[in-house]
């Protein structure tokens, strides 16, 4: 997986709460293979006008935030479904970090697996960042994972992240490779378990 240590980049404000996974990528697009790229599908219905054209006033469409790699939003970002495609859409659009007061659990876990940082700040700090970015008083943010800080102009604020996720992002290891190294322990578990819980094995129907 992709590592995340630090990032200084343009940031885009998305002053919305409860941006759930259905908004991040509507279900009807999920049959597409990842190889087609999911970036254009990010927030598909929110960023378009009723006639289907991109709304130039919507933050991620706006010229001012073009090329942004950091997204700032309100509470409960990524709540809802387990679709990893929500993270693919953000990542393929170019985002490497999302800053918000809280995140959907499965979303955050999926994000980490894809090297996308879910950084938690207080509601007040999120509001301040949103306001500063909207007024274009600041345009870039510098996110540093080891120190868990965000530099916004002259201010430096802290952010929270689960320590396990932090470690995962910092070392960027692939979980599958990590686990395959434990194959003997896993095999031993199942051998023991078959004795301990013989009823677990599904009985074949026919």
């Amino acid at each position: 997986m992709q590592q995340f240590v630090s990032l200084a980049a343009r940031a885009c404000p998305l002053p919305l709460a409860n941006v759930d996974t259905d908004q991040l990528i509507p279900a009807r697009f999920m049959r597409r293979p990842r190889s087609e790229g999911y970036g254009q599908l990010l927030l598909h219905d929110l960023r378009r006008r009723p006639d289907g054209e991109l709304d130039p006033g919507f933050p991620i469409n706006a010229e001012a935030y073009r090329g942004a790699k950091i997204l700032v939003a309100r509470r409960n970002f990524g709540g809802g479904s387990s679709r990893e495609a929500a993270v693919y859409a953000l990542a393929d659009h170019g985002f490497r970090a999302v800053i918000a007061p809280s995140f959907g659990d499965i979303f955050a876990q999926n994000a980490v697996k894809n090297g996308l940082l879910p950084a938690r700040v207080t509601d007040a700090e999120a509001e301040q960042l949103l306001a500063d970015l909207a007024r274009r008083e600041i345009e870039t943010l510098a996110v540093d994972l080891p120190t868990q800080t965000i530099k916004a102009g002259v201010r430096t604020i802290g952010f929270a992240i689960d320590s396990v996720w932090k470690q995962q992002l910092l070392n960027g290891w692939d979980d599958v490779d990590l686990t395959l190294n434990e194959a003997p322990a896993i095999a031993a578990f199942w051998a023991r378990d078959e004795q301990a819980r013989p009823w677990v094995k599904p009985r074949r129907a026919s």
């Binding site: 479904s81 387990s82 679709r83 999926n110 979980d175 599958v176 686990t179 896993i186």
Partner: peptide
């Protein structure tokens, strides 16, 4: 519920972190 990377992880190892 799990995401796609975890789906693959379970398929390959029958475990999850």
């Amino acid at each position: 519920g799990i995401g796609a990377s975890e789906v693959a992880h379970v398929m390959l190892t029958q475990t999850l972190w």
